[in-house]
Design a protein around this nucleic acid. Structure first.
Lengths: 410, 410
DNA sequence: TCGGTTTGGAAGATAGGACTACAAAATGCC
DNA sequence: GGCATTTTGTAGTCCTATCTTCCAAACCGA
């Protein structure tokens, strides 16, 4: 039922909202454009574009300026560009090895960002909230306070979308932690907050600004200590009923395998996670990022043990991906986090397993690529998530327009 | 990017299309309703509903009649009901053990349907097309010819959505068979044809008219000889890039397992397919539906060997479902085909494995249910697929309206 | 400087639904 | 059976948003 349970009647106003949203989204995704480019792309007339852009400019969200000369005859079309003071979100990332925050405006480029490493181990919700508060105090929040419309949080853990609570975060030792309701107050911001899994958000970021630009169906695998996944279907994140979807790390791929931290047996994570990689390479499994870096350096120098371990993990990556390719028939598979850094060593094994195990049809259509955004992918995805309500209905932010029109008419 | 590569601007006409579509879809999904019920459900005003219904009645697609007395005060609201002569589709199902066809109108109820058993084994495309032609000749196609707007085909095999070709159908021995381009001519119908995998369509049918009514996120597992799957996300079928998505049968779940017909190793199908079940029960693996029926009868009589085999398969069903629950976070999991018939014997094992292996969050949200539509699910889903273009834009079928209005004004 | 070309701008046309007032058709009480 | 009450259908008018059309503005090249 493509229409919700209670379908809502469409009106003229709906048309305006949709068109305004289309323009703003276009400018957000493809960057500043001239009015005439927007006319060509949206199919709307110059008149309609003019009125809509006029409203965005009057609302101080966008500005028009002389574009660069194009060397074409005809009257030049002004470039429409987002104002930095217009709409801004605060993006936050709680990863296994670092905490990060950024202020991001329309267009998706960070205005300012900070990241600090975080030692591994369990930390209370209070401690993390305090660390984040301090981190965010290093951003020019006050300068943009009036423009901030929301907070987006990328979380290494299982998140409920509706209330932003963390159902489970093994790396931090959290269970049912009410993260979403704590943060706005901690930052002194009274705006909506959106919390989601870091891999889900990395997928959004890679789709819009990274390795999967232009694709509509994407599968991303995100490796840190654990293994997460993000699925994009028809351009929209697959969240599932509560937002839990995408937990690829806990697919059973080897019933005869090892016990997983989740209590299950033979999860994919037990074969391709950081600990499995370090174990295979004969390094301390709890060595963390330092040992992983050392392993990758060894591989770069051609050390056989390191290369064998990476190839072995690559094979298991390929085995799991085969099932996912058959299941989801994606256009692009992006390997992020640990898998992006190790991609060059794993690629042959991954591709060989895919060719061996996946069905011919979906296999031929799927392109494999390492992530392009590195550690920032979840953070940028969190910004996109927080911007989404504005993109869906920019008119809500513009406020009452009827009064202005009435005043002008009087 | 929820908006296509070239976004299309919205106009007043779009509003009308959307509202007309909402009304027609509502009547299709929930059955005949009074005008006032439609007002309440769509949020449109009486005026708008009146105009839109008037158009549908004038176009001979729907009719209004006195509804049953409701015992309430106030002027009674007429019931809006689809006309049988209005819009009809031809649905066809090519299953492993049978061929079926039906004429289906708005509302989803078959006007007429036929099904014949089919012996297993390879058959050429020509032979199947001829069998279908004969089957369809038993339906009152001529009586509804003018109303038939499309053909929907449910196919036991891997299907490309765009051209309706069958990429692979192991049971028939097909590979790259141009099924979609052959059928309309064979039926003497010059209408659009839509071919899709039978499990994908069974999912649609169970969502709209079966065990998953009211849900928006659904996973269906369909067992015949092979194992197929259908995924519904946010009320819409997950097709993937080419329509291949949902092939759950070929997820690798047991790397140490048996070689699958697809050439891969340890596919889920090798653990839970019909052949695996018969083998575990000590019956001939190629016995087909007769042996399966005998097995189920034996189980009903309490034969230990049969019960053990069913429980064993149930465990593997649960193992695979665990991964899918973590991956997709569905609201309902429907077991169809063979699994629906054997559900009562497998249920304990399935639930036990889910509780053991799936993550707590998504596990708690997923309801498991056997399919409610039996063998007809793919056929009914094929009808829904063929009806979809009409539901999305009924105005296209109504033809030019402006002329009528102009004539009335003159 | 002067056409040719492209884009911006303004006025009227078109289309669709919302709002309001009133008529019509049922129920229920007396 | 008559009358008040309730609910819905109908018609006229208003509001909103885009499209169409025509003209002015700005740039290029000769």
């Amino acid at each position: 039922m493509p229409l919700g349970p209670d379908l809502v009647g469409q009106r003229s106003e709906t048309v305006r909202r949709a068109n305004l949203g289309a323009i703003v989204r276009e400018l957000h995704l493809r960057g500043p454009q001239s009015r005439s480019e927007l006319v060509a792309r949206t199919g709307l007339t110059r008149t309609a574009i003019r009125a809509l852009i006029g409203e965005l400019v009057a609302g101080d969200l966008f500005l028009e300026e002389r574009g660069a000369p194009v060397g074409q005859p005809g009257r030049p079309s002004p470039l429409v560009r987002p104002r930095e003071a217009g709409v801004v979100v605060l993006a936050v990332s709680i990863a296994v090895d670092s905490l990060a925050a950024a202020l991001v405006g329309i267009g998706g480029e960070p205005i300012a960002s900070v990241r600090i490493p975080r030692p591994r181990g369990h930390l209370s919700l209070d401690a993390i909230v305090e660390d984040l508060r301090e981190l965010v105090s290093g951003l020019p929040v006050d300068a943009h306070r009036a423009a901030i419309i929301g907070i987006g949080v990328a979380m290494a853990g299982l998140v409920r979308r509706d209330d932003g609570s963390v159902s489970s975060a093994p790396n931090l030792g959290w269970r049912d932690a009410p993260l979403g309701e704590r943060l706005p107050a901690a930052f002194g911001l009274d705006v909506p907050i959106h919390v989601a899994n870091e891999a889900d958000l990395a997928a959004v970021a890679e789709l819009r600004r990274g390795a999967a630009r232009g694709a509509d169906d994407l599968l991303l695998i995100w490796g840190e200590v654990g293994v997460g996944g993000g699925i994009i279907v028809d351009g929209k994140p697959l969240t599932g009923v509560a937002g839990y979807a995408g937990e690829v790390g806990h697919m059973p791929v080897n019933p005869g395998g090892a016990t997983c931290g989740c209590g299950s047996i033979g999860c994919w994570e037990t074969e391709i996670g950081e600990r499995a990689l370090l174990r295979l390479a004969g390094r301390p499994v709890d060595g963390g990022p330092d040992e992983v870096d050392a392993l990758l350096r060894a591989a770069a120098e051609g050390e056989p043990g390191a290369l064998v371990a990476l190839a072995h993990v690559g094979r298991w990556v390929g085995i799991g991906l085969s099932g996912l390719v058959n299941l989801l028939n994606p256009r692009v598979i992006v390997l992020g986090g640990l898998f992006a850094r190790a991609y060059s060593y794993m690629e042959p094994a991954i591709l060989a397993e895919l060719d061996r195990l996946a069905l011919r049809g979906p296999r031929e259509l799927a392109r494999i690529a390492p992530g392009a955004l590195d550690v920032d992918a979840p953070l940028l995805g969190a910004a996109e998530l927080a911007l989404e309500p504005f993109l869906a209905d920019p008119a809500a932010r513009l406020g009452p327009r009827a009064q202005l029109v009435a005043a002008a008419g009087a």
